[in-house]
Design a protein around this nucleic acid. Structure first.
Length: 584
DNA sequence: TTAGGGTTAG
């Protein structure tokens, strides 16, 4: 792989607001990374070496040593995600600790293993923490109906907290109507919904049915004798802003005292966010001025929000000015203040500036967090500096910021795209050895990289690994392998996999169809390609095909379809191209 | 239970 172009050495001078701030920007392509976070710099003593878990010291426990070590072992297994081993241990334990069981229930449910989670629940006996974990698990796994049935069986509705979990789970999956039904059940059973329950429901109602509907629920809540608090009102203020009615939100805020509730800084921040979304910068500034007078001075969130919005709109210099204002208001910038700017520099491909900015934040006592580093890793990979990314990844722990799944996924992807699949696979082994569980993104990345190298068999092994882990392969993973098969002209196998994908309940997307249609057309299987396109037609989706992959015969065959009402739209080849000439 | 980082695969 050719060495990437170095970062421009003659970068434009920093904007005025930055003058002096970045003066220590190094002339090296990449300045040394910031010094380690003092508090976390000292290497932590290793408590235990691999394989000696059972011999863990139990000096702090007064319980029987056997029960301590098994409980300790169970906790450690759950933490490491070794669920099968944890399940075996739960099966043999006399009375496993409810907190650990709750954690295991959560993890099992997250992998869709709710039946096994229920076995764990049975093993640990009645415990509200475990109940809530089960409820959250069902909801998280999308089995909200199972959650409701289970809830009814156990009559746990009487516990308001468990009900909140169910209501939150239902609301989180857009099942607001069911959540409201649970509320009715609660009221019938004289299980008093509290302000939290209502607030959750109000938030969902705002999202689903709009704030006007939420206002009705607010009245109902008051009728039932439940007094809204400022959080409740803020949820409604947010709902009003979400519908683009910021001025109505401001009006509502003004009337709050007449309901016996004073706005707080969060209330103003919500309105401010609405103003920023509408790019009403002057109004935002004015509101910030008012906040102090109204006894709700801006806090660091206020400034962070402004910085984030300005950066998103490409207004990096004003964002830098806001950053400089923060201390004048008695607030300290934190990593959330710096990260949007760091991201902006990365996006501008000004890596030297980004690195210098990182130094700046450290010199001001704000330590980069994992999001800062992940932002850098992404940018380094995208700018062709994968080796620097690998180096940074390996330095993270010493900087007091251990790499996470996303960090590894980012660099693994960078390596596969740089044609360094072997190193990517080594990194995969490394993360596993460090106890980080790869996820669907890790394996999709690896599979796509292997396919790019025509190593379809290995990619299919990665696919199998995902299934072994109890994770359902998703569309992205299927697409990667289908593309690999099509590129190898094994279109029939690709179609088989397509059928398998649908049979397993994984919905194909536009890319899936594009890949397959192009693959079929390449092999001259025009009829089959057409059938697939018709299927897309019936879905009424727009399809943009890469004309470079399509031969003239294929385009000519399909052209009439592009005029069909409501049918797919085939982007025409660029004017003057050979394909365009052949068509007209 | 409300507001803040448009960190990862196609």
């Amino acid at each position: 792989m050719a060495a990437p172009a170095p970062a421009p050495t003659a970068s434009p001078p920093p904007p005025p607001a930055m003058s002096g701030l970045l003066s220590f920007a190094s002339s090296r392509p990449y300045p040394p990374l910031p010094a380690p976070r003092p508090a976390a710099a000292a290497p932590r003593p290793r408590l235990r070496i691999a394989g000696s878990a059972a011999a863990a010291p139990n000096a702090v426990s007064h319980r029987a040593s056997s029960s301590f070590s098994s409980g300790d072992r169970l906790r450690s297994l759950v933490r490491r995600g070794e669920l099968d081993e944890a399940l075996r241990l739960v099966g043999s334990a006399r009375r496993p600790d409810a907190g650990t069981c709750a954690a295991l229930i959560k993890k099992l449910s997250a992998s869709g293993r709710t039946a096994e989670a229920r076995r764990v629940l049975a093993a640990c006996g009645p415990d509200v923490m475990a109940y809530n974990a089960m409820m959250a698990g069902y909801c998280g796994a999308g089995q909200v109906d199972a959650a409701r049935r289970w809830c009814a069986e156990r009559a746990v509705e009487r516990d308001a907290y468990t009900c909140d979990t169910l209501i939150r789970g239902l609301c989180g999956r857009g099942r607001t109507a069911n959540a409201l039904a649970v509320l009715d059940e609660m009221l019938r059973r004289r299980c008093v919904p509290d302000v939290v329950t209502y607030t959750i429901l109000l938030e969902a109602t705002c999202k689903r049915s709009g704030y006007k509907q939420a206002m009705k629920l607010l009245d109902e809540m008051r009728d039932k004798g439940c007094t809204p608090d400022i959080v409740t009102y803020n949820v409604v203020v947010n709902g009003i802003c979400q519908e683009g009615r910021v001025d109505d939100a401001i009006e509502f805020l003004k009337n709050l005292p007449s309901y016996g509730c004073e706005p707080n800084t969060v209330s103003y921040n919500i309105v401010l966010k609405g103003l920023c979304t509408a790019e009403r910068w002057e109004d935002a500034e004015e509101l910030m001025g008012e906040m102090g007078q109204k006894g709700c001075p801006p806090n660091v969130v206020t400034f962070n929000m402004l910085i984030s919005f300005l950066c998103r709109k490409g207004l990096v210099e004003p964002a830098l000015e806001v950053l400089e204002q923060i201390p004048k208001y008695g607030c300290s910038p934190n990593s959330l203040s710096y990260n949007p700017l760091l991201h902006a520099f990365c996006k501008q491909k000004k890596m030297d500036k980004a690195m210098a900015f990182l130094d700046l934040m450290v010199s001001r006592g704000c330590y980069p967090d994992i999001v800062s580093y992940n932002t850098l890793l992404t940018a380094l990979c995208r700018s062709g500096e994968v080796d620097v990314a690998v180096e940074l990844l390996h330095q993270l722990k010493d900087k007091g910021c251990a790499p996470v799944l996303i960090s590894y996924n980012t660099v693994i992807d960078g390596l596969t795209k740089a044609g360094k699949t072997k190193e990517a696979l080594e990194l995969l082994n490394e993360m596993v050895s460090k106890g980080l569980q790869p996820d669907i993104i890790t394996y999709s990345t690896i599979a796509a990289g292997l396919c790019r190298e025509d190593r379809i068999e290995d990619a299919i092994r990665a696919f199998g690994k995902v299934q072994d882990m109890g994770i359902r392969p998703n569309t992205v993973l299927y697409n990667a392998i289908i593309l690999g098969l099509c590129k190898r002209r094994e279109t029939h196998s690709a179609i088989d996999l397509f059928a398998y994908m649908i049979g397993n309940g994984c919905m194909p997307n536009e890319s899936t169809y594009t890949i397959l249609i192009e693959g079929l057309a390449y092999e001259g299987l025009i009829k089959e390609a057409r059938d697939l396109l018709d299927e897309l037609c019936s879905r009424g989706e727009e399809i943009l095909l890469d004309v470079h992959l399509i031969d003239v015969a294929f385009l000519t065959t399909f052209l009439p379809c592009s005029n069909a009402n409501g049918g797919p739209f085939l982007r025409l080849p660029p004017e003057g191209s050979p394909v365009y000439d052949a068509l007209l």
